[in-house]
Design a protein around this nucleic acid. Structure first.
Length: 747
DNA sequence: GCTATCAGGCTACCT
DNA sequence: ACAGGTAGCCTGATAGCG
């Protein structure tokens, strides 16, 4: 690679250093820049080194003088910034919350190329199994590890496992470390970084095994905190991060667990999938080892799918590998926009929050949005045959590119009374009046005709994407596919209305987000109108950039005609041709229930559920199975009654009635401490000593005495009334009640 | 005391 | 602490009814 394995900031003797690992060597260098922020004002900060710089302000694109405040350490910067925020509020200091490694990368784009990891990366793919005490829902810290499987670059899976009667895992761990010197490992691949490595390290601690062996410089690994596990000289790649962000899986996998995702990619293993009970029962047997080995093979299957994009991303952005393994949209935006702002000598003079107070600081309810987003609607419900989906490819980046949006071209001019979308063309610019139903105003956005730098950058990304996508198809190449996906992410990250619409992203530019979503709504509506006209009231559901519609008897679907009509309408509406293309997918049948909630049958005859109403992970198995059976009956026009009668008997295992919920926040963040999730968390703490923690998952059932953890419930305690009502709900979902039938259907 | 309805808090999902 | 948008579950408050 051209880039290092990892870079982390660290303070030594009060000075900011960069801790760089490359080719299994550590380089502790002085950071080439000091932590800094800007302000328009001359502030009284004695500890800072103050200088003046001339640059263009992001808000006005006019040249201004800024004071630059440099600090000895990040902590000094944070303290000074927070003091000013406390006294004066936000908005006095600018670019004051950029992670230091990224700030270094933006200001010295070639910096990390001086520390390349040239050796072939040594991977270590790993999975462990752990004992669970009978009756307990999950393993605990003192539970022994029963098996470890791993593979290196040779892909040969090896295992080490505990005998049935061994009560300690000390020898197993010692042997594992002996067989796998961490000195020779660069990248640890696993699924769920909060489990395997912390567990191994905890078990080593419990067994008094020296854990400094894990790191390359004798420093103890850290396992706690929100940062997760970190080991000096090693980068941890959690494939779950890639799988959970993979949009192409939506609707095709029941969850983002290792098994579901690898099954989706046609995993073929030797072992069978074991239940929790079997995993305990089969300790010390070949079955458990095969199961454990299969998980490593699943891991490697997914590794081959996702790794290419990680390494490519690191090199394309010139960032260390550890930053690329779980690059957030925020950080991607910082790098891509940071490069552009540096090249054009722009300083972001405040965040959206302070630059557009009328949008981001107005009085509103707790979860009310700041501005209007995408168009979402359902026009017709029920079963439809020959369902098609027309969607824009990369809609938002294409809009930003075609409409020439960017900080240098786009300005929020003024607000007008809420009304219709309007375009006014002048010699050098367009003015777009964008109605916003959140702000209840028309937002007037001026866009210059002179080509802008951000639109140009996005065009470059989209062209690169198209190029690699074509190659991927022609050569059936995973590497090209990874490149294509990477450029799609880059294009999204630089326009990503998520970043430009964020209140506190340092480089966000709200007019861009408002224009992007505003044009998005117009384009979606255009597509709806055309399909409604061509196939007579054919549109079913709309979500952002995709329109589901059906072609009824007597109409002939013609893709060319749709696209032609679409292009004509674009010219009519926007007074010029736009570079927006649409794709069309087909499904033999579909059942549409509500916005974002529908069931499709694809060409292969598979049932694909969309939306929380159908596939919410919190619902019980009984309800899920019922939905699946009724969906098939409904789509095949068969009688649902026998299915319902069968389910009415509630003849299932206790587990099939278990619902589940995950703690979404830290215990002290719950405004309602007596709320549902907290009450389950308290039960778990009282009975099993499980500390309430963000991310904890609780399985529960409804009993006559209230909601109970699954482990505390028995079958004859179940609230049958509640579960009968669950069945009623499913029936209602598929039985089209008058309230959900569109007016058309009655006419 | 029971049932229906609604708002608010929260999770889970979609683009 | 990247955005907005929708559905559904659960709780607690309130209203209507007998």
């Amino acid at each position: 690679m051209q880039v290092p394995l990892s870079v982390e900031p660290t303070v030594k003797f009060g000075k900011e250093k960069l801790n760089i690992w490359h080719d299994r060597k550590q380089a502790l260098i002085n950071a080439p820049i000091l932590p800094y922020f800007y302000s328009y004002e001359k502030l009284d900060i004695p500890e800072a080194k103050i200088s003046q710089v001339r640059a263009k302000a992001l808000s006005s694109f006019k040249e201004r003088t800024f004071y630059k405040y440099e600090f000895e350490s990040r902590q000094e910067l944070v303290d000074a910034r927070n003091k000013i925020r406390d006294e004066r509020g936000r908005g006095v200091t600018f670019e004051d919350n950029i992670p230091f490694v990224i700030r270094n990368r933006i200001d010295n784009p070639e910096l990390f190329l001086k520390y390349p990891h040239k050796k072939e990366l040594a991977f270590h793919h790993i999975d462990i199994e752990q004992y669970i005490k009978p009756g307990k829902p999950a393993p605990e810290l003192d539970d022994r590890i029963t098996a470890i499987s791993w593979a290196g670059n040779d892909r040969k899976v090896k295992s080490i496992f505990l005998g049935k009667d061994s009560l300690t895992d000390k020898k197993l761990l010692q042997k594992y470390l002996e067989l796998n010197p961490y000195q020779n490992i660069d990248v640890l691949t696993l699924y769920n970084k909060t489990y395997d490595m912390p567990t191994i390290i905890n078990r080593c601690n419990a067994c008094r095994i020296d854990i400094t062996k894990f790191s390359k410089n004798g420093v103890k690994p850290s396992i706690g905190g929100e940062e997760g596990t970190s080991i000096e000289g090693i980068t941890i790649y959690d494939i779950y991060d890639s799988a959970s962000g993979d949009q192409s899986l939506t609707g095709y996998v029941p969850n983002r667990g290792l098994k579901a995702v690898s099954d989706h990619f046609k995993f073929k293993g030797k072992g069978r999938v074991l239940t929790k009970e079997q995993m305990i029962e089969l300790i010390g047997t070949k079955d458990l080892v095969e199961y454990n080995k299969d998980d490593v093979k699943r891991l490697m299957l997914l590794f081959d799918i996702y790794w290419g994009a990680i390494e490519y991303k690191a090199e394309a952005l010139k960032i260390p590998l550890n930053l690329a393994t779980n690059l957030s949209m925020t950080d991607l935006g910082l790098v891509v926009l940071g490069d552009l702002y540096r090249e054009h000598n722009i300083i972001a003079d405040g965040e959206n929050w302070s630059r557009y107070p009328e949008i981001f600081q107005r009085e509103k309810d707790k979860h009310e949005p700041n501005f209007q987003g995408a168009l979402v609607d359902i026009k017709r419900t029920g079963v439809f045959e020959k369902v098609k989906k027309a969607d824009y490819s990369s809609m938002y980046p294409n809009i930003a590119m075609t409409f020439n949006l960017g900080p240098d071209t786009t300005t929020l001019l003024e607000y007008k009374p809420y009304g219709k979308f309007k375009i006014i063309e002048e010699e050098n610019w367009f003015i777009y009046e964008i109605p916003d139903d959140v702000l209840k105003k028309n937002i007037c956005i001026q866009v210059m005709k002179k080509p802008g730098f951000l639109a140009k950058k996005i065009e470059m990304f989209l062209k690169a994407r198209a190029h690699h996508k074509k190659l991927a198809k022609e050569l059936d190449s995973k590497a090209e596919k990874a490149k294509s996906d990477t450029y799609k992410v880059f294009a999204n990250g630089s326009v990503g209305y998520g970043i430009h619409g964020a209140a506190h992203h340092p480089f966000g530019f709200a007019p861009m987000a408002i224009a992007t979503t505003g044009f998005g709504r117009q384009c979606a509506q255009l597509l709806i109108d055309i399909l409604e006209e061509l196939y007579s009231k054919s549109v079913i559901e709309i979500d952002t950039d995709g329109v589901y519609f059906y072609v009824k008897e007597g109409y002939e679907f013609n893709k060319k005609k749709v696209i032609e009509a679409f292009n004509n309408r674009i010219v009519e509406k926007f007074k010029r041709p736009l570079n927006l293309s649409i794709d069309i997918d087909e499904y033999p049948k579909g059942y549409f229930y509500a916005m974002k909630n529908y069931v499709l049958v694809n060409e292969k005859g598979e049932l694909i559920f969309h939306g929380g109403a159908f596939k919410s992970s919190r619902q019980c198995n009984m309800s899920k199975k019922l939905k699946e059976e009724i969906a098939w009956a409904k789509l095949d026009k068969k009688d649902e009654r026998p299915i319902i009668d069968k389910y009415r008997k509630l003849d299932f295992e206790l587990e099939d009635f278990a619902m589940n919920v995950k703690m979404g926040q830290h215990p002290n963040q719950y405004s309602n401490q007596t709320g549902f999730v907290m009450s389950l968390a308290r039960q778990a703490e009282a009975h099993f000593g499980i500390k309430p923690r963000i991310g904890n998952q609780y399985y529960y059932v409804k009993s006559y005495s209230g909601y109970k953890l699954l482990e505390l419930a028995s079958k004859d305690d179940l609230d049958t009334n509640y579960y009968q009502k669950e069945i009623d709900k499913v029936i209602k979902m598929f039985d089209i009640s008058p309230a959900t039938v569109s007016i058309d259907k009655w006419l």
